[in-house]
Amino acid sequence: MKEIVIISGKGGTGKTSYTASISVLAGKDAIVADCDVDAADMHLLMKPVVEKSENFYSGVVAEIDPDKCTNCGICTEKCRFNAIPVINDQHIISSLNCEGCGYCEKVCPVEAIQMNEMNVGDWYISNTKVDNTMVHARLGIGAENSGKLVAKVKNEAKQLAEETNKHYIIVDGSPGIGCPVVSSLSGANYVVLVTEPSVSGLHDLKRVYELVDKFNLKAGCIINKSDINPEVTNEILDFLKKESIEHIVSLPYNENFTKAMTNGQTIVEYDQGELRDAIVQSWEKVKELVEE
């Protein structure tokens, strides 16, 4: 079983479009895991039919029992997050402000406060339009992606892959360089970096590669919209060479990316020309690289 993780650092580089494309190409050989939970868009292309759904709990939030509360005000005084205002002479928790530190619970003299697990969203196991299984999640407002949620999605995907003898797990990784992306990368057999030749694209590629390198993971890079700025494309190529990152493919600026998306399709379904060929070839290459 091989786990391939696709990450980009910055938004808008075409990461999800690419991930969905190779998921379609891999078809029944793959389990798909969408760990880009902050902008979980892959379902729009993969059209999953939900087969199983469960609530997801993460972190805690304070709750005051008004029957026990004596309105002494110690909690309000101690809370550093202005999360316990007094409304109509009653101390209440503003859950959007509550950080879940539990200080109020510890100092309450009458034990009127308890910390409850927070239901921050749901996660799903679904069957996609090309008949591969997809594990994905949805977060509520104000809820943050976390290493925990990513680990959950990936664990479910791994278990399914083992049970059903799939060869690939294709992971749409989280953005940024924090805890969720660490969790996305952890356990990967191969990392595909999707970037674009803009000043911010290169900047973010370098930042996220630091992590990949630290984890000693094999990586290759796809330069999307490569003809937009040949100068920066060359800078990216130099960077890849210097770091011994495989240059998998350069894709041109092509509005078929968006047209495919608008049709609810992946590029390999929508485009029947050179763009499709390039992506098919890149997937063949990734398959070889992951086995090395």
Binding site: S58, S146, G147, K148, A151
Partner: peptide, 8 residues
Amino acid sequence: IENEAHGA
């Protein structure tokens, strides 16, 4: 450790 959001 599955129950920890951060700091695993």
